[in-house]
Nucleic acid binder design. Structure first.
Lengths: 250, 250
DNA sequence: CAGTCAATTGACCAAATGGTCAAAAGTGGG
DNA sequence: CCCACTTTTGACCATTTGGTCAATTGACTG
């Protein structure tokens, strides 16, 4: 755990005067190792590499959690040698944080449609549909996020308080106004967000369970639409916003 | 009585011809080892020990996932030396499975109240309330389960298909009958289960997020009741079961 | 072409971890 | 008290894993 290494990616700066134990000496076998190698990816610039690494990391972290994922696995998934990940991100934790930050953006964005001047039903329906769409199209991001929360959010507890909380406060205020104006049922607006998040992201986070119960290998277009209509319908009705027109498709 | 050993702790199954590497041996010397010791726990019988281990494991697995949890940590949490865990469960995976199996029972039980002869509103309300209660009282179990699903359910995919699926099929049939009889709104009964699970368990799985957004350290009795009334109200309304009487408290 | 700096990579290492052993302690019967 | 059997432990080990380095390659400039 030494090497705190808070320094940014490259920033190699002067030659690390690391005391380096360096006791070493040849282990028993020289280990041919090496083997193959041969470059494979048409490396692009720094940005492209970082993106490739973060995307690979997202998949691996989503599939095994922070503790279960290994840098070697991520490196393989990204098609790069392991030291490369450290070159760009410094440490496993730093890479993990990068993945989480990327996820946060996707997480907050959909709420943009909830504004005072919008129509309550349209705004909420749009929000739910967008959340459902993201659950189906970007399940990895949702899972990484879920995994982090599940384990107590060790990396982003402060982010939750500093970013998510204010956002929810603002959006909840909008809902409260709609409620006060009698435009939707009276309910706890913050809790409503929790329910919407849960109901929509369950299709990304717990997809295996849903597929197992439905007896399918994977949710096809048709099943995704069914699920979306169900969630939209149930929640809108729960909010007293049951549009007369069921608003087929988006 | 040899019978004692009925419960096959390490699955050693008879003369398990475990291929066990059984490599070398003859360590340096006999190693005096066995120094002080000083027992600490008033050990009970086999059953009590296993229970203590599983409970400790549940907490640790919930907090770090399968990959992030370590046997040493679980041993410490259980107040036992590490080899003890292996003596009773054989391996980390086996212990993990034991935890999951324990969780499964809690998971399925609450659905018992959903039977054809029951009143739709009362049955669903009771189910949701029980799920909420479990989320608040046994968050660890829910988190272990969630973590397993999140990572693709490598250990219990078959259990999902063989146990959960049939159960949902039966319960969904009950709901479908109620729907056909016009006793509740027409909706996809299986999807309804997904939504109920998600909406209720989010209070266990993602408690940190909820606490962060609400700006509290922990959900107290009052907050738990608020959350419960919210979920019950929203879903019942969504199912067209809005009891005229809001059914305060249970 | 030499010089400089970013990017790349194979080889290693120290620490952590799942798992194993053999030597104790109990425990109960004869 | 001896014997057979179950439990309990401290000490270890093989392997995995995050992380580091020195050396090398590539691109761009003067």
């Amino acid at each position: 755990m030494a090497a705190r290494r808070s320094s940014p990616p490259a920033r190699r700066s002067g030659a690390g005067p690391r005391p380096s134990g360096r006791k070493a000496q040849g282990r028993g076998g020289p280990r041919p190792g090496a083997g193959g190698s041969g470059r494979s990816l048409p490396r692009g610039n720094r940005e492209a590499q970082e993106k490739a690494i973060v995307e690979a990391a997202e998949r691996v972290f989503a599939g095994a959690g922070f503790g279960g994922a290994t840098m070697a696995e991520i490196a393989t998934a990204a098609g790069l040698p392991k030291p490369n990940l450290h070159y760009y991100f410094g440490s496993k934790r730093a890479l993990y944080r990068a993945v989480l930050e990327r996820t946060l953006r996707e997480w907050l964005e959909p709420a943009d449609c909830i504004v005072a001047k919008a129509d309550p039903r349209e705004a909420l329906e749009g929000y739910i549909r967008e959340k459902m769409r993201l659950s189906f199209t970007c399940p990895y991001a949702s899972r990484v996020w879920a995994n982090e929360l599940l384990h107590g959010a060790p990396e982003l507890r402060t982010t939750l308080v500093r970013t998510l909380r204010p956002l929810v406060r603002r959006k909840a205020a909008v809902l409260d106004r709609w409620i006060a104006e009698g435009r939707m049922a009276a309910l706890d607006s913050k809790q409503l967000f929790f329910t919407i998040w849960a109901a929509t992201q369950t299709y990304a986070d717990f997809a295996v369970q849903i597929c197992a119960v439905l007896g399918v290998e994977k949710l096809d277009q048709r099943a995704q639409e069914r699920a979306t209509e169900h969630v939209v319908g149930l929640i809108l009705r729960g909010c007293g916003l049951a549009g007369t027109r069921s608003s087929r498709r988006k």
